[in-house]
Design a protein around this nucleic acid. Structure first.
Lengths: 118, 118
DNA sequence: ATTATATATGAACAGATGATCATATGTTAG
DNA sequence: CTAACATATGATCATCTGTTCATATATAAT
């Protein structure tokens, strides 16, 4: 990564505060992971999957039918959601049921919805 | 968009619940906007910009220097953040100061951070 | 074992994304 | 007006992403 030292002729905030910001900044890998997490929310198909799972666990084929999409497309996206630990799965015979992993999903989507509707 | 009716031989949840889910689902444009919003969070450069703005408003050059990136790159990303109404700007002479638009940013990033660190 | 159903996965391709570079715009000082 | 500084923007390009299609795996029934 290139460095760009002293871009400004003079700073507009105290150097102490700039130093503090650098210290308070989470480490690079956390920031990367955080961006990766939000990328997962950044697709309307995955958002829609999470929304239907708000109500109840569902099997892959029911999700596909609800969203009017192919089984394959949904399965690929469920894998992404699972890797991000936003959903979990349990198998029952041939069927695999997916469900929300925790409540952060609801909070994050709820806050996002608040933001766009204000 | 293609339709995939009756993918399952038989449903695993009550048809009534499936119908309810379709009703509860936000309209297509809200879901699209929501995904667009999270896409904005889904980039580590933009996350880092939001993080430094947690502390104080900052001019473009100070942000660029803090993050070790070019003025142009930061300016492009600030535009994305501004279009998503996550940051706002005020001009003071030659300098433009950017600051967080509201508190949803903090909540969303906070919840995201909780999720990845648990 | 064979067949059918449910789900998962790899390859491929079109479309989106983010940094860079060059340049334009806006503002102030001289 | 002109020069200098701060910021914004358009074009380009390499990379990433999401769907489709074909196929593989897993489970159950006959």
């Amino acid at each position: 990564m290139q460095e760009y030292p002293e871009l400004c002729e003079e700073h507009h905030v105290h150097p102490d505060l700039l130093a503090h910001m650098k210290l308070e900044m989470p480490d690079e890998s956390s920031l990367y992971d955080l961006a990766e997490l939000f990328k997962v929310f950044g697709d309307s198909t995955r958002i829609r999957i999470l929304y239907v799972l708000f109500e109840s666990e569902l099997c892959v084929c029911d999700i596909a039918e609800l969203l009017g999409m192919s089984q394959s497309a949904i399965s690929h996206q469920l894998r992404v959601l699972k890797q991000a630990r936003l959903v979990r799965a349990r198998r029952e015979g041939k069927t695999v049921f997916y469900f929300l992993a925790d409540d952060h999903v609801r909070t994050i989507i709820g806050q996002g919805m608040e933001h766009i509707t204000e």
